[in-house]
Design a protein around this nucleic acid. Structure first.
Lengths: 351, 351
DNA sequence: TTGTAAGCGTTATCAT
DNA sequence: ATGATAACGCTTACAA
């Protein structure tokens, strides 16, 4: 039961015209009779024709596919990010191919390879947690494939980037905690290899410094920011002489997990410890007390990255556009998991 | 600055052999000298060659792309589902193209069209909330493109399907609530157009009937299962003479939203109303009290669908495999949002 | 084990 | 406004 594919030759034969004319008519090119266009299109419909994009792409060197490499799809932040990309790509007639690195450098490299041999017109990448080598990133320039790095980018690479100001966000979050009267503030950080976590941590340190708060290395805990990491980090705090009076976590997963663990231990949030997370995941507003967190414009990052990528793909290669970094706004969403020291001691604040 | 693409001809020229031999060596075909393979591969590496899959696909009529159409990527359940698909596809050397219908039939149809002209080797689809027409689904068979429907499937279509037993899950959830002593049980249902919601509802009704509980149409509320829907549904219950003593919601989003709204109104969960959700989203275990819910094997559904699709793609067309429906197991996860009537009246149960 | 030639379905170029 | 021809880069008969 072989399936015979309908080609422009078949249409041409039936209509007694040339394949070239059919091709032109189908694409609505200029310099072709309107009557011919009508004839061809209706015949194409009738015969159930559909373009072979492989053949067209081979000829035009365009696939209308963009590749997207992310750590893991099933994280609220990343799913939203991809959703934003798809939204824009779809409007512009591009297909989105997704690859997940599972936060593994080797897998990320393999992803990039398969993406490249799939002849995508461009790519968007958000680095895995432990990626160190940049060779596979450089490959894009070498192969002249437009690339936009998003969120987890590599500072040292000269490519288009879409990010947030993680330093500022970390600074503000910490400053906010300080403004509440806290001065013994812990930070749950991710791998310093990644700009996002390094910058959030640096913002945290800068705020402490700015307000003359003590910088205690024991309060700066590096973790992989998983759910289990939240518990581990709390355990590390518990063995200290003094519990911190506030925690700024580099993501919501860890922050929420920490809150739950602390509550299980009978430590009141925010009465005894104030907590601020990062991302504004759905779980943040379900937690009790609701989690104070930094709103991360995941969808906007995706949309911006896709727009940039597509305009680069569609641009004249000649005009050699400068690489740009787009920095999107974040905002601190203040909710119940953080509260002032003064009121706290009176034990009045719940949520 | 045109970028010259390296082809097998370039490699052949440099090595003084034929392109055919290069092609064979690269693919490690049988009947070729090991020394040639080595020579060719190292030269390919040196020259930075990468396969043009468009050309190869044009010749072999395979793209190694599969298309996936889902309602919306940024829903916990769907993101996990896609993650499972990508996992399997990636292992098998297939790329995953995603399209989101945004729960809109027209968009879904457009998605299917672009997917088809992108010459995918097969597709996986989960229907939008309001899809009625099946013409675009039939197109797959007409064009001889393997298709697997997953989760939100169309009962009337004869295609491969991967589902859960929604009737059974709805029956069990309701039966469980009855076993707790509840007999005035409400159900928040989704569009009866979709098998998943229709079956959950039918399971609910069957359980009520089986245990001789009254079936009250006012307690069966059809909604779009969004967050706002949870609030709306609760409002509809509030105007009744009597509040139900339990609610079974067809998804967690609505269940959680309902719990929050009820709590805001001062109604204790589960003391005054027991609630059961569906999906086991991350928010379910963060809610206080934690949400009793039906665990939905989203990742397994994705993996099963991908495996089936790929084995069909790789199968001999001749052997004309029968369509199958794979039904995966669900389980009821009992947590704090539901409790027995007896204890409840004593006001002892919190969580 | 290797090579030659044709063809996959388009589109671009050059004619007419 | 339309047509003939070549080319995109690969794989598959068939031949050597």
């Amino acid at each position: 039961m072989e399936h015979k594919r309908i080609t422009i030759y078949d249409i041409a034969d039936r209509l007694g015209i040339s394949p070239t004319t059919v091709s032109r008519a189908l694409r609505g090119q200029q310099g072709i009779a309107k009557s011919t266009i009508k004839k061809v299109r209706s015949m194409a419909d009738e015969m159930g024709y559909s373009l072979n994009t492989l053949a067209a792409g081979l000829r035009t060197r365009k696939s209308y596919n963009i590749g997207v490499v992310v750590p893991q799809i099933d994280r609220a932040f990343i799913a939203t990010f991809i959703s934003g990309i798809e939204e824009i790509a779809n409007e512009a007639g591009f297909n989105v191919m997704i690859y997940q690195s599972m936060d593994d450098e080797a897998k990320e490299i393999r992803n990039v390879m398969s993406l490249m041999s799939s002849s995508v017109d461009g790519a968007i990448i958000s680095l895995s947690m432990n990626t160190k080598s940049m060779d596979h990133i450089r490959l894009f320039k070498a192969k002249n494939i437009p690339l936009v790095m998003a969120d987890r980018v590599a500072d040292e690479m000269d490519v288009d980037k879409v990010v947030i100001d993680n330093f500022e966000a970390g600074y503000h979050a910490t400053e906010y905690l300080i403004s509440l009267g806290h001065d013994y503030i812990a930070h749950f950080a991710g791998s310093p290899e990644r700009n996002v976590y390094r910058d959030r941590k640096d913002g945290y340190l800068a705020a402490l410094k700015r307000y003359n708060k003590p910088i205690n290395p024991q309060l700066l805990i590096y973790e992989n920011l998983s759910e289990a990491a939240g518990v581990r980090a709390v355990e590390k705090l518990l063995i200290l002489d003094q519990l911190p009076d506030a925690i700024f976590a580099a993501n919501d997963t860890t922050a929420v997990s920490a809150v739950l663990h602390l509550q299980k231990l009978g430590i009141a949030i925010p009465d005894e410890i104030s907590i601020v997370g990062f991302n504004n995941d759905p779980i943040a507003s379900i937690l009790k007390p609701q989690l104070t967190t930094v709103d991360h414009p995941a969808r906007e990052i995706g949309k911006t990255a896709a727009k940039r990528l597509i305009s680069r793909i569609n641009a004249d290669e000649e005009m050699d556009i400068q690489n740009e970094t787009f920095t999107l706004k974040t905002s601190l969403i203040i909710r119940g998991s953080s509260g002032p020291v003064s009121i706290r001691s009176e034990g009045k604040v719940h949520w």
